[in-house]
Design a protein around this nucleic acid. Structure first.
Lengths: 332, 332
DNA sequence: CTGAAAGCGCTTACAG
DNA sequence: CTGAAAGCGCTTACAG
């Protein structure tokens, strides 16, 4: 910038004015400055700008896995909102590891992002308090933050699972399995709660062997699915707790001799083309991301109200797999 | 940092040493400094650090759409490599718009990212020259940069498409349709070239009505697919140029009275569970991202060799749809 | 309409 | 082992 000023024969401040489109520069002066800028290949260094202005016009997004078909559209939605507000997006995957989440979040804070959208992996976010005190805005999405009063945008995990299981009950099932993610994940326990509520509402008992929470690695899900389909009290229907679990369960059911009904939480690409097509409780991942990012920017614009919790509805999409009648392996 | 130094009763430089883990500080002094840091809730401001050091320990990734199931794993792979090198990832979608690509890239440059991984939307990257001259490293991935000598990591689009089409020819097809993306996209024309090469190698003519390049919006793809399946010279097999096109084509074929063979470029989740299961030419999106990011960091570590072009192999996965025999609608 | 001075929060030599 | 001074590239008051 100094070089540009020298070449154009003007002061530093004048160059700054031109670069930032501020008023109060003669057309002729501006022309000289622009000429010098292109001749020298000058580009403003935003790091220096940030140092003075305080705001970085960037936000951070920390989620579980950028590659997951649920989180990818969520990211894109956050990016679009950021773009509308002239901000850039810094992105990171926690890989469901609380230590990695913390490390990432703090690295983003050190870069002085203006705000943060976080899908938490851990259950304790008190480490954010100094940052929040220093002016950082944070919105949790998909899952609430832990031990901290903060904004959160969630899906109706409880209601969605309850309705999905009730759908199976309405189609005559009494022995329904629940295959979910690890119990330390908020959405997993909420969906399990929905399952139990639907069973209780129908007056149905829940055998301990019908419920399985744990890592969503295909091996475990496959083993657990097979276990529920055999044994003394086999299930006639399955409720799967997220997209990864559903994909694996569908693979197992495709090779199973008896038809087994299935409702999955989260929609899957091509789910409508399978035989039977897969009935799902769909979340709107884009809308989750958009809502969270919009809330974040409202905070950055000065909204200092109490922490807000927004809950988005889910949608049951009946396609076939959830409407199969019970095929009772024990009695026929 | 000044406050920390004052509170600990030491100089600024000593605080800097502690924060950066540099040697040459008494255990007792270090303890005093650390105490002051936690008491004051101090976090180093990396913007200031960047201003002095020159390096930002961040890289930018610009691609078409963060939410696309092909680009999402590519992003994640770039992120992992960045993480291994202690760098953060700034991310943006160009939405296949050259102007938006340029805008994003320049915004990332203004933040002084150390390097850039770019899936180009535009065909002219001379705008990067001043940045490159100033030390920016750039690696293009999935598609080469335009009018600029730069590193590129690509899939073998030509060979993959050629083999996929040859596979259909080997199963008896003579009238094969090609449904691809817009012709200004490098991968679209490369794959079309592969299609033509396979047809030529088999001595088969290509009717103009069998080739369709254009936007991958479902409406257009649906219309074009239906057009190729009817009319005077209907195709008996389809080669689809990417994941989005394949998904739409599969939907059309599912409702079509006659079986039509299909090979798609790019793998799809659940493709193995469809009836018939979808034969694809799979790219390794993660490996593309990883290879590009690793090359970028080699450049940042000082590798100043001539621009490198790496080409990754594709893999034909036969699952059923590509092995269907011709069902000739005209002759029976 | 234009510019010289001070300062954002760090690090880099350099000196004790 | 420790610190005072200068400077990274901008912007913010302030003065002409």
């Amino acid at each position: 910038m100094k070089d540009v000023a020298a070449r154009a024969g003007v002061g530093l401040k004048t160059v700054s004015r031109v670069v930032n489109g501020e008023p109060g520069v003669t057309a002729e002066t501006e022309h000289r400055v622009r000429e010098a800028i292109t001749a020298l290949g000058f580009r403003r260094n935003d790091s220096a700008r940030v140092l003075r202005k305080g705001r970085t016009a960037s936000i951070g997004l920390v989620l579980e896995d950028l590659a997951d078909p649920f989180y990818a559209p969520l990211s894109r939605a956050v990016e679009e909102v950021a773009r509308d507000h002239g901000a850039l997006l810094l992105n990171g995957s926690s890989a469901e590891d609380p230590a990695r989440e913390r490390e990432l979040v703090l690295a983003l804070c050190a870069r002085r992002v203006d705000g943060l959208v976080v899908v938490p992996a851990g259950g304790d976010h008190r480490y954010l308090e100094p940052e929040t005190a220093a002016g950082l805005a944070t919105v949790f999405v998909d899952r609430p933050g832990g031990l901290i009063a903060a904004d959160a945008v969630l899906s109706d995990n409880f209601g969605g699972a309850r309705d999905g299981v009730a759908h199976l009950v309405a189609h005559g099932h009494r022995r329904i399995g629940f295959l979910g993610d690890q119990p330390r994940i908020h959405t997993a326990t909420e969906r399990l709660r929905g399952y139990r509520a639907a069973m209780a509402a129908a007056g149905l008992p829940v055998d301990a062997s019908w419920v399985s929470l744990g890592p969503t690695a295909p091996d475990r899900v496959r083993a657990e699915t097979e276990r529920m389909l055999t044994g003394p009290s086999p299930v006639t229907a399955l409720f799967t707790g997220n997209n990864r679990v559903t994909a694996t369960a569908v693979r197992v059911l495709a090779r199973h001799p008896r038809p087994v009904a299935l409702v999955g939480f989260d929609d899957l690409e091509l789910a409508d083309l399978l035989t039977p097509a897969v009935t799902v409780v769909a979340q709107d991942a884009s809308r989750l991301g958009r809502t969270a990012a919009e809330l974040l920017f409202r905070r950055l614009d000065g909204d200092a109200g109490p922490p807000r919790h927004e809950e988005l509805p889910t949608r049951l999409i009946a396609r076939g797999s959830g409407e199969l009648p019970p095929a009772d392996g024990t009695s026929g």
